[in-house]
Every structure is written in structure tokens, then in C-alpha cells.
Design a protein around this nucleic acid. Structure first.
Lengths: 295, 295
DNA sequence: ATCTGTTATACGTCGAACGCATGAAAATCT
DNA sequence: AGATTTTCATGCGTTCGACGTATAACAGAT
């Protein structure tokens, strides 16, 4: 079973053999034995390259997950229940992972000296099993099934621009006037349309033609600081810029819809202690979330 | 690992050896090898009887679950995704399992000729893993964690009594008058107090001294038919009795709080096809649930 | 005290799995 | 198109691990 997983990942019997310190015939025979015991073929083998059967693909996915979680479990077994150790692989968005979440991470590491964290900055939701990811921070609504999502809080989003850009313009506390401005857009969240909401209720939609579309909050901030255009951005990113006067907030009565932040991890019947603790630590650090993400 | 599970279940190495067509020394060595590979002891062994370590107990629970789900998975593997087969172990409450749910069960069996269903009538929530249960019907609120609960519907509950019991009594459309009646109680749901709710809103609580407390809806019905007392019962149980006149409904404007019915099964990352189909079939059969459970 | 049940150890045997060597087939390169 | 390289499958001899039998050690029950 381990052998099978290695074969699939290596892409050939020979490669798998090299990785496992075994000879190619051994690998071949193991695969045959497995297929014989299941009474079906898992891999279509041709002289060049392998191709998993539909059953083979299912087997691989499940076996991979099983092996990971089982070795996890075995190494947890001997420890006391409150003794946490091991390596935790966490995927976080670039923007949060660089600043906001470093504090909670450090606190977690201080509380659990035998835990190592792999802090992987990635903006897309990972494939937990294939990449061996324990959990991820997800910004936006969670529509992935078979995933546990724990709401950590939400980020407020406001409209900002540089003072030079708005100099000489009037009425920038009314959203209708925003159309005349050049814009910088943040790719997964908005491109050609902006929706704003007043304190309680009232909504306003606005079509824009962005000068730049980026997927990085920091690139967006840099562009806005240089006066390229206005933008909607998470409030915490530009907090210092607003106090220093490097940026000004437009239509301060209005906000873009807040985006929820979730901690997500795959369903399982057993979770390693380190993951349970990490979830607890994150939830405690945020505690409410409103202050944490926007303070 | 299989060996370990058998040892724990058999209670001794020798017994496990007999069950597995092996000799006792073999079992002993396997256990030692397992403990050596984990670098910890799983079982405290004395000359008479075994006792699992704390780690041993954890190992057993997980291994048991793993073996069950894995063999399940392997036998599913070869089939086409739409080909369902195997044995499904379902726990249902006595009252539902005998009548209401037989219809959907038969429909499910007709649609899936290669599935065998073990239909276990039991009123308490099972231990899914130890008993190898796939899913269960649960009446009442679900407060069990790590369980998927699918709401199938809810059962209406009304107050009934035999005509002889209420003969000569007046005002039995007002809940205050119910105090004077003798009562029959249904053990897990009410014993000494009943709560009633009027069509929209108004609630009324009522202390009773039951003549009989039973945990069987059918025993309750029989007792009520014989005029022992009044009772709160699921509407569908006494539907025919009400039309035939064998029973009469009291305070018809009032109902006891409806009880939700859920289909529950343990969280898992993969479910056998037969379970997915059963869940679908049940949901389809109920479809809304109001008519099904009370029609 | 004996007996009956338990688990651990010693030893000889057997077989499964391994590595080496080889064969067959197909894709790529020349 | 032929040569080459890479792939997976197979046959053979060997080795090492796991098994069964037999036995020891031990504890509780009779």
C-alpha cells in the first residue's frame, strides 16, 4: 500500500524502487500482489509511463490519506494527551501570513515548544491530502464540502486614495463621485464592479475600469500610495497610512462588504493533538475577531 | 493490527489465537512486535486476563474503525460508482422501525437489489464503531458531536384518551382540566410534567402523576386503549384509533412540542456507496417529513 | 498442594520475498 | 527505419523472517 502510493507519486516502478531502496522487480511484484488481492487492476502499465485506473485513483487518494493520518496517530499515541509535538503544515494567505497572523503564530509556538510549524504562504485553498496540509486560513465564504470551517472574524474594507489624487476634487463623500476616479482592483475580490454599503442598509453599486488589477494587497497598497488610483482595501493594511496622512479614506460613511475569515481543515474522525491545539490557539487569539482583524 | 484488535476483543492471547487459526505463541510475538515498533506497551498482561493501557485503548478504538472502513472501501473499489452492494447495518427506534420506516426500507431494497440491510430495532443511540453500525434513526434533538445529522422531519404529538375515561367529564378542551385525569407516561420524553403549546404561541405546563411509565409507544397505546389514562403520543400511532372512535383527542387546539427525527452517522472522509444511497433514499422518501411522519 | 489456565521463550522448519539476471515491448533518438 | 534507451515482467537461487511444536514460568482456583 505504501508501495502503491510511492509508485503513483514517482510515476514509474523504477523510480519508486529507487526511492524505496528496493529493486524494480520487487516493486513490480508488490503491485501485482496488491492487484491480485483486490482482483482488479489499479494501474494501466505501458512501456512508457503509467496511468491509474479509475479504481486506482480512488485507491491512491484514500491510501494516501490513510497513511498520513495513521503515522500521525502512531506518533501521537505514546505521548500524554496534553503533550503536543510534531510538525504542523499551515497554509495562509500572503497578506495575513506576513503580518497579522504572525503574532498568534508566535504565541502558539511559545506555548508548545515541541511543535514545528510550516508556514506556507499561498492564496488558494490547498488540496489538503495531496500536499499533506493540516489546516489553512481561508478568506471569503467557504463553499467547500467535507471541510470544517471555524469562523475567526471578518475584515472591514474601505475605500482609500492618495491625497494627491483627490486634490481639487469635491464631493468624495458621495459614492456617485467615485466613478470619475481611476481605480486599482484586487483580483479575486473585485475587478470591474464595486459594491458599497452604508452604515445600516443602503447599498450602492459602481462600475469601474481599473488601471491595475493585482492579486496582492501590498502591490495594491503601493500603487495607491503612488497615486495611481483609488482602491478598496482591508482597513488594517492602510491603518498607518491613514494616520500619517499618506492616504485618505473616501466615502467614510460607506464600506465594502466585510469578508469573513475562516480556519479550515478536512473532516476526520481523529485529529492530532497539535491541530486541535492550533485551532484552539487561533480561536483564542482572535476571540471575536472584530478587534483582531481591524484594530 | 488486526491481531491486536482480535486480542482485545477476545480478551486473551489464547482465545485470539484460536479465533485466528494460529497458535498462541504467534499471537504473543505479533503483539510484542507491534509494541516494539511503537516503543510502548499496549496491554498489561498478567497470567489471568489482559488490561489495555491508555494508549492501548486509543489504539484499539482507532484500529477497529480503520479496519472496518478499509475493508468496506476495498470491497467497494471494484464496483462502478453507481453499483451498490454490501450489508448496511441500521439502528432504528422500535416504534418507527416496525411500521413507518418499513415502507422506505422496502423501496430502498427494491432499488438496490445487491444490498442487504440489517434492521436493528434499538431505542438508544448506538456506538457506531464498536458495533459496526452504519447509521441510525434518532428521535429527538441531536447533541452528539462528530456525527452528521440529517433532519428527516418531525413528529406531531397530541393528547389522547379512551372515550370511557373521559365520559362524563366536561371541559376537556382546556388544558387545566387535564390535571384531574390519570396519565400514562412515555419514559424518555415525559414522566412527571407535560408541556403543551397552542397553535401559535401560548404555552402551558402541567404536572402529572403517571399510573404507568413505559418506554414503548405500543405499550402506551395499549394502556390508553384500555382506559388506564390519558397520554401524549405521536399522532401517527393513534391515527386509526381516532377515526374508529377507539380513542378521542383531548385539547385538540393544543399539541406537545414536535420531536425532530434525524438520520445520523459518524463523520468520515469517505462513505461507502451503500450508505450514501441509503441517506438519499431516506431523504427522498420523507421529502419534507411533515406528511410522512404524520399522514 | 495440585490443577488449570495464562503468557513468554527456544528451536527447527518452511515459505514468502528479495536481488540478480534476463526477456519483451515500446517510445525516442539518430 | 534502425538503434538505443527506458520501461515493466519473469525465472532462479538465496536469505531472512514468521510460524508451529514443545517447554518453561507464573498466578489464581479448587
Amino acid at each position: 500500500m505504501q508501495t502503491f502510493v510511492r509508485i503513483v507519486e514517482a510515476g514509474s516502478l523504477s523510480a519508486a524502487a529507487a526511492q524505496m531502496n528496493a529493486t524494480q522487480p520487487t516493486i513490480s511484484r508488490r503491485l501485482q500482489a496488491l492487484e491480485r488481492s483486490l482482483r482488479l487492476t489499479l494501474l494501466h502499465r505501458s512501456t512508457h509511463g503509467l496511468q491509474p485506473t479509475e479504481a486506482g485513483a480512488r485507491y491512491y487518494a484514500r491510501a494516501k490519506e490513510l497513511l498520513l493520518s495513521w503515522s500521525e496517530f502512531e506518533s501521537d499515541l505514546g505521548r500524554a494527551v496534553d503533550e503536543v509535538h510534531g510538525t504542523l503544515r499551515v497554509v495562509v494567505p500572503h497578506a495575513f501570513g506576513q503580518h497579522k497572523l504572525v503574532g498568534p503564530l508566535v504565541a502558539f509556538l511559545a506555548a508548545h515548544p515541541h511543535v514545528t510549524v510550516e508556514w506556507l504562504l499561498h492564496d488558494t485553498t490547498p488540496n489538503f491530502i495531496e500536499e499533506g496540509i493540516d489546516c489553512a486560513i481561508h478568506v471569503g465564504d467557504v463553499d467547500i464540502p467535507s471541510v470544517v470551517a471555524i469562523r475567526l472574524g471578518e475584515v472591514l474594507r474601505i475605500v482609500v486614495a492618495s491625497p494627491t489624487l483627490v486634490a481639487g476634487r469635491e464631493g468624495l463623500d458621495q459614492p456617485e463621485k467615485l466613478v470619475d476616479l481611476p481605480w486599482v482592483a484586487l483580483a479575486p475580490y473585485y475587478r470591474h464592479e464595486v459594491r458599497l454599503r452604508r452604515r445600516h442598509g443602503e447599498e450602492y453599486g459602481l462600475a469601474i475600469q481599473p488601471r491595475i488589477v493585482t492579486d496582492s494587497l501590498y502591490a495594491l497598497r503601493s500603487a495607491v500610495l503612488r497615486g495611481i488610483g483609488a482602491a478598496i482595501t482591508s482597513a488594517w493594511v492602510v491603518r498607518d497610512d491613514l494616520t500619517s496622512g499618506a492616504l485618505v479614506q473616501l466615502v467614510p460613511d460607506w464600506q465594502a462588504p466585510a469578508i469573513p475569515v475562516h480556519l479550515i481543515y478536512p473532516y476526520a474522525r481523529f485529529y492530532p493533538a497539535k491541530l486541535r491545539r492550533f485551532v484552539d490557539a487561533m480561536r483564542d487569539s482572535m476571540d471575536g475577531g472584530q478587534d483582531f482583524f481591524n484594530g
